Every structure is written in C-alpha cells, then in structure tokens.
Amino acid sequence: MSLPNVVNALTAEVQANRKSEYDLAPLFLNRWSLRSFTDQKVSDEDLYSLLEAAHWAPSSYNDQPWRFIVAKTEEQLAVFHSFLGDFNKLWATKAPVLLLVASDKQRANGDPNGAHAFDSGAAWGYLALQATIKGLVTHAIGGFDRQQARELLQVPDHLELHAVIAVGYQGEKSQLPEAIQEREVPSGRRSLREVVFEGKVSS
C-alpha cells in the first residue's frame, strides 16, 4: 500500500471491522496486530526506519530508556524462537524479524527510573505506526520466557524485558492454523466512556 493511502484512507478490512467515535487519522485504525506473515525479508533501511521512529518517542528527562535487541538472521531468529511460548510459536516463527523490547530501570546517575516502562511503551507505539506507514505489520508478544531470554541474550539485570515484536509483511490468513484464522481481523475497542473519566473515576 502506498504511503498516502495508508495515512489518509482506511483499508477495506479495517473499514469493515473498525469505527472510531471521533475524528481520527486513518493511520491509527489501519494499525492492527496481525499474525500472518509472508517470507519476504525486511530491508535494513526499512527496519531501521522503524527503530529510528521509536527512538524519537518522548521520555522522562529525555532518558530514552528503551533498548531493542534485533533478530533477523536464521541463527538469531532460532534463539528467539526457543523462548517464545508454544502458542506464539505457531505463527511468530514465520516473521522475518523479531525485536525484544527492554528498558533501563536506572537513570544515568544510578537513580531508579520510575517511567522506564511507560516511556518504552511510547517507543513501541511509534515503531508500530511507522511500520504501518512503511507497509509493514507488527505484533507485540507478551508470551515468552523472560528468564530464558535474559540468559540466552545476556541481558543485564538493570534492563527489564517487556515484549517480543514480530515484524514483516502481511500474509494470507489461510496460511495460519485453522484455530487462529478467526482471530485474523482488526479488533475493536471499548467505548471511550469505559476508559475516560472527567474529573474523577465514577463508581
């Protein structure tokens, strides 16, 4: 999909499954978490465009606590596959790139950074939107063995592990296991009234 279309117009599958309550740029609705990937490789130029976008996210004191561990070779991907949960192995092993998102729990002076996870979530959001602009798809995975990942990737204790991000190009739904195919549609959202409170949280 071309850049102007994905930014300015809803895709057909999104239009059939999503509707915002208020005016919203189509880009935000066009981003959704797919599980079907093709075997098409992601160029370093496109991959690092996503990471560049993530790196421009806002952060407390501009600490930029996010860290990204990238797997894109067969050897690197095999290591990542080994610590994915069984359900996620059914589909995520098809993705040509996997990223492990971590964040530094400490500031440069050694003080604890209470905003590290919040800030790294913002970076992931930027990455996901840039992927959509580039015609790529992403899916954040929480189901993985964090201790095994830490040991295999030699991650120091001051970094907290958050999610594995699958990155690639959208494949056909029919390539997924049958039990997963019904999930391969853009999801809806709760009503804003359920998550937004003016003044105070109502009972």
Rank of each mutant, 00 (worst) to 15 (best):
Q175Y: 09
S60T: 07
P186Y: 06
G188W: 07
G135P: 15
A95V: 02
D86H: 01
S187W: 07
D46G: 13
A71C: 01
P58L: 08
V185T: 13
N17Y: 10
K19W: 00
E182K: 12
H158Q: 08
R35L: 02
R146N: 07
S191V: 08
A71I: 06
R146S: 06
F197K: 07
P156F: 00
D145E: 13
H139A: 07
S187M: 15
E184P: 03
Q148V: 01
D44G: 14
A12E: 13
F144H: 04
S43R: 06
A115K: 13
G142S: 10
Q170A: 12
F68Y: 15
L152H: 05
R107N: 02
Q40L: 11
A115E: 10
S174P: 04
P65F: 06
F37K: 07
F80H: 01
A115P: 03
L127K: 09
W66V: 04
A115I: 09
S43C: 01
Q147N: 12
L50E: 00
F68R: 03
L90Q: 11
F28M: 03
W56D: 04
P96C: 00
V164R: 11
L161Y: 00
D46N: 12
E160F: 11
A123E: 06
F80T: 01
V185I: 12
A149M: 00
A95P: 04
Q170L: 15
A128M: 14
V70M: 02
S191A: 12
L24I: 12
P156C: 03
L27C: 12
A9Q: 14
V70D: 01
V7M: 14
T138G: 08
E178M: 10
L136P: 10
D111M: 13
Q130G: 04
R150M: 09
T38C: 03
K89R: 03
P186N: 06
S82A: 03
M1F: 05
A9T: 11
W91R: 05
T38S: 12
F28D: 02
Y61A: 15
N30L: 06
A92D: 00
V201I: 08
L84C: 04
T38L: 09
A57G: 03
P58A: 10
P156L: 03
P112D: 11
Y61P: 05
V196P: 03
L51G: 13
R107I: 00
N8G: 14
S2G: 15
L90T: 05
P156M: 05
L192Y: 06
V137D: 08
S187T: 11
Q40F: 10
L34F: 09
L34Y: 13
T38I: 07
E182H: 13
R18I: 11
R18C: 11
G168I: 04
L50N: 07
L84W: 02
V185S: 12
L84D: 01
L84R: 01
E178R: 09
A179V: 15
A102E: 05
L34I: 15
V196Q: 04
V79Q: 07
E21V: 11
L98C: 00
S49W: 06
R31N: 04
A54L: 03
E182N: 15
F144Y: 12
L47Q: 01
E160P: 00
A16E: 09
V14M: 00
L153V: 00
